[in-house]
Design a protein around this nucleic acid. Structure first.
Lengths: 184, 184
DNA sequence: AAATCGGTGTTCGAATTTCGGACACCGACT
DNA sequence: AGTCGGTGTCCGAAATTCGAACACCGATTT
């Protein structure tokens, strides 16, 4: 089964995201756009947050797929940041919505999700304890989140590469510290 | 219902058409490409010719939709030729296949189909008898078919606009003759 | 304060679509 | 003569999509 309907729902949502803020997108808008029954939406997804979760997860996986040979955490941060900034980014639409507090939590969840996904790959050949892995996720997620927060707050500077570099500088020490800790 | 699966099957077919000659495209190739059960193909389409028929019909309808205000038969011929040449053209792939005789008949059928579709619009506000309409379809279809035949045979010249103009010159007299005949 | 409105999320059963697994058939190739 | 790959068809089961309800909520209107 190839789930064309599910795919169409996702595409409609992304399309609508480019037309209006997420807070104004209803389930009805989505199903109207792709001409399916409202129940079909609920058959595939719990609710809109679940839809977002799946889209973001997919994009993260696609990204990791595209960079199978990430050699360093720094590169990983860069890639994760690219993910958050370059690729359309559902995250941003969420962030820009009205219910800021709610979606800040959600953005953080997404950051952790992305970073965790990445670290599964990045830590594959390095022996690091589970606790340290968790620490790495937290540290890097917070950095990523903070960067996105700042980047959006300061008016979305056009010079993304420089901004990414800045984030990398912030995070550069973290992986070394983690690996060092792991060696005791 | 939005028939995403059916749409996917069509898209897979068109995709495969750009990779290999139509005579080498099997139902299995199609369903493998879009990850659908073979029976699902047969649920939607009688066979591959029926699939082609539907694709071409749709493209013709889209074209007519895009040119709702065709003012003259000449313009119509131009549009129909554009349809046959500019828009990817399933017709051509058919034509280039091994079983030339079979598909020449089919190409002619398609030409007639397109021209009929067009003339329904073009003759809408002109009172022309059914016999004359049929004559117009035959004459213009043959011109279109002959043009495509010649165009392909002579190595698909790059200067399409000039070729279209040439076809229009060939056909220019036809509509006038038809309308004149209709006036008795 | 009550009523209306638009959206949510859920349930149900019916209808449609997709599926896997058969089958006979055919033409090409061994 | 037998194998192979493709076709077109059949079946019943499973999955998906549907329309029509329902209670619920929050905002807006009256």
């Amino acid at each position: 089964m190839a789930d064309f309907t599910k795919k169409a729902i996702k595409e409609s949502f992304i399309k609508l995201l480019n037309e209006k803020p997420i807070s104004k997108i209803s389930v009805k808008d989505i199903v109207t756009d792709c001409k399916v029954n409202r129940n079909t939406f609920y058959y595939h997804f719990q609710d809109i947050p679940a839809l977002i979760e799946e889209i973001v997860t997919e994009q993260a996986e696609e990204l990791i797929e595209a960079y199978p040979e990430i050699e360093s955490l720094e590169k990983g941060i860069e890639v994760a940041t690219e993910f958050a900034i370059k690729n359309k980014m559902v995250v941003f639409h969420i962030y820009n919505s009205a219910n800021r507090d709610l979606y800040e939590q959600y953005t953080m969840r997404l950051c952790k999700h992305v970073v965790t996904k990445y670290l599964e790959v990045a830590f594959k050949d390095v022996k690091v304890s589970d606790e340290d892995k968790e620490l790495a996720v937290r540290l890097i997620s917070c950095s990523l989140f903070g960067f996105v927060y700042d980047w959006l707050d300061s008016g979305m500077s056009e010079d993304r590469p420089a901004d990414i570099k800045r984030l990398c500088e912030v995070c550069r020490g973290i992986p070394d510290i983690i690996i060092e800790r792991s060696r005791n």
